[in-house]
Amino acid sequence: MTHAAPAVPPAGSADVPPAWTTWRLLPARVVAMCIVELQKIRHDRTELYTRAIQPALWLLIFGETFSRLRAIPTGKVPYLDYLAPGILAQSTLFIAIFYGIQIIWDRDAGVLAKLLVTPTPRAALITGKAFAAGTRALTQAVAILVLSAILGVTLTLNPLRWLGVIVIVMLGTAFFSCLSMTIAGLAMSRDRLMGIGQAITMPLFFGSNALYPVDLMPTWLRVISHVNPLSYEVDALRHLLIGTPGHLLLDFGVLVVAAAAGITAASALLGRLVR
């Protein structure tokens, strides 16, 4: 009496889920990373308070002083109103540009190597961390907007515009955090990342329309402003928060493309950190 040999499943079919299944994990991973960030803030609010000091100084000192000097022409818009969205974008930039340090910490702790052997796509991990940075930035944005309102900045009351502000802040922070994680994949160390981050932060800030209109810039700086994603984030925030003329669809499109490019670049270099 003979027995039929058990059927052998195709190679990789038992243990490795199909690609479309792993990509279904993307929303869950993003939500999980965001929850982790909120829990960190809930357990230790010190970073939130200390990070709010610098934007507060920009609004209280720089904003109030230049409002009285009227040295920067902003049309019928008070300079403090004009400045507030720019400082909001600046604060999210400062949070995101050093976010790659967390990737290096994860590598040093052995967490990154464990994450990379899971079936979750690398792009899903990067996307989760990018939008987790956006969640952290939103908590910072609340503090800045409350201070702006106290100082007399006229902010919109339209809930749809506030929803747009959330989307723009998340996209802008996602791009700059991915830029930081890309730099981490190239620099490979915290010290190098800190040095590069400090070297590019202020040029990104001053090379945008956060402090002054593009029309006041010299020609070479206008070119930099037009390719600087921060300029599009500021333009969208000004339009949504204080109602200045803007190019919302263009701003949104540029930020979406920039965030997608940042996720792609950071995902491609993620494995380099654990080699």
Rank of each mutant, 00 (worst) to 15 (best):
I263Q: 04
G75R: 14
L269Y: 10
R136Q: 00
S231E: 09
R42E: 06
T182N: 04
V77L: 04
L273M: 07
L269S: 12
G172W: 05
L221F: 08
I150E: 02
A52I: 01
W20T: 14
S148D: 09
P78S: 01
A143G: 08
R29G: 13
R222G: 09
G246Y: 00
T65K: 09
H239C: 08
A187K: 08
I61K: 10
R68E: 12
S148V: 09
V257L: 14
Y232S: 00
L241D: 00
L151I: 10
L186V: 13
I263Y: 07
V142F: 03
R51W: 05
G243F: 08
A113S: 14
T22Y: 04
H239F: 08
L155C: 06
S189P: 11
A141C: 08
S180L: 07
G246R: 00
L138H: 12
F66M: 10
R29Q: 12
V223I: 15
W23G: 03
L93E: 00
R45T: 12
T65F: 10
G128P: 14
A260K: 01
I104F: 07
T154V: 07
I97P: 01
A130K: 09
T92N: 07
L186K: 06
A133H: 03
R42C: 03
A123H: 07
V257F: 06
D15M: 13
I97V: 14
N209I: 11
I97C: 03
Q54C: 07
L230W: 04
Y82E: 04
G207R: 10
S208L: 05
L88Q: 01
L157I: 01
N228I: 02
V257Y: 03
H226C: 05
F62D: 03
F94H: 11
V165K: 03
I263F: 04
R107E: 01
H43C: 12
P27L: 15
T156K: 00
A260N: 02
L69G: 14
L125Q: 07
A11E: 14
F131R: 01
V169H: 00
I224F: 12
L38A: 07
V257Q: 06
R107F: 01
G243V: 13
L145R: 05
A141F: 00
V117H: 13
F131D: 00
T74D: 05
V254I: 15
V16Y: 11
L216V: 01
S148L: 06
I224N: 06
F131V: 08
D44M: 13
I196F: 11
V223S: 05
L179C: 04
T92L: 07
I61E: 03
A123D: 09
I144T: 06
L179N: 10
V153P: 02
S148G: 11
D235F: 05
T219Q: 07
A19H: 13
W105G: 11
T74H: 06
G195R: 02
P78Q: 02
T154W: 00
